[in-house]
Design a protein around this nucleic acid. Structure first.
Length: 272
DNA sequence: ACTATCCCCTGACGGC
DNA sequence: TGCCGTCAGGGGATAG
């Protein structure tokens, strides 16, 4: 379940590994994984060099030579790996990008086939605008967040998961942030005043930066481009801890469903 | 316009 | 031992 820290960690690793390298050829095993289609995709990227990487929320953008840009979204189980060119691929590998002048290739694996690598028609900024993505969670200001929260009738968990409000938060980090901030996931988003919102945002950024330092959270599938797992799963205080005592007060952690997602919280510490 | 729900897809897991 | 239902959660599509 890659969220902002996992995508950031992947981006940092890839930047060191692939910038300056050229895509020699493309092999697609599952057509739906690329957009608009494998033929257009291959024609557009063949011979292009990786010039820059950029992340916004859970999206990773590859800026290639010739003003070509790609948008990657890992969704739940997607992985982008740099592996030896001769390595055999398994049934979950949907795309191979062979690199020129190197014995390596980039492969895209995704057990659940939800992830996508899209050739952009325009610039990255236009893509972000089309998707109506909000400011990145590490760049949003307290004022921006407060304005967005004020005008919704939804609960805080639903609002934080909404990528048009703030981009980058997913189910795991949202639960962890609300626990640390002692806010009920069911609290009305519009009921947070500007000071409470500022405090929430400090916790959002603290948790995300901490998770980046820990190289992400690996519960099942997440690995970086070298296949390395993260370790923030060892820092989780509520997610996946149903029935276990709250680290703050000892009350058993409760699991419910909020905004269509499994939601873990302490009913005692997060009662409002 | 805003919000809630369904759906995609596979693997893991629990009950019987 | 195997079959079946449920769950996992990104975001797009669709319904209300």
């Amino acid at each position: 379940m890659p969220e902002l820290p996992e995508v950031e960690n992947l981006a940092q690793g890839l930047a060191a590994q692939v910038l300056g390298l050229t895509i020699e050829d493309v092999l697609c095993h599952f057509p739906a994984v690329v957009a608009p289609d494998p033929v257009c995709f291959a024609e557009a990227v063949r011979g292009r060099r990786f010039e820059n990487l950029r992340r916004h929320g859970k999206y990773l953008f590859f800026l290639l030579s010739g003003d070509v840009a790609l948008a990657l979204h890992l969704r739940m189980t997607g992985q982008l790996l740099l592996v030896p060119r001769v390595q055999r691929v398994d049934k979950h590998t949907h795309l191979e990008l062979f690199l020129a002048n190197r014995e390596m290739k980039i492969v895209f694996r995704d057990v659940r086939k939800f992830g996508r690598l899209k050739l952009l028609e325009g610039r990255v900024e236009e893509f972000i605008k089309e998707k109506k993505l909000g400011p990145d969670a590490l760049g949003i200001s307290a004022l921006q967040l407060h304005r967005a929260l004020r005008k919704t009738g939804r609960c805080i968990k639903a609002a934080l998961l909404d990528q048009t409000v703030v981009a980058g938060l997913g189910n795991i980090y949202t639960d962890e942030i609300l626990f640390r901030e002692q806010i009920s996931p069911l609290k009305q988003a519009c009921s947070l005043d500007s000071e409470r919102t500022a405090s929430l945002l400090r916790t959002v950024q603290k948790v995300l930066r901490s998770a980046i330092r820990r190289k992400g959270t690996t519960i099942s599938d997440y690995v970086d481009s070298r296949g390395e797992k993260g370790s923030f799963q060892n820092e989780l205080m509520v997610y996946g801890r149903k029935g276990q005592p709250c680290s703050r007060c000892g009350t058993p952690i409760v699991k419910t469903r909020v905004a269509g997602r499994g939601t873990y919280f302490c009913p005692s510490c997060q009662c409002q």
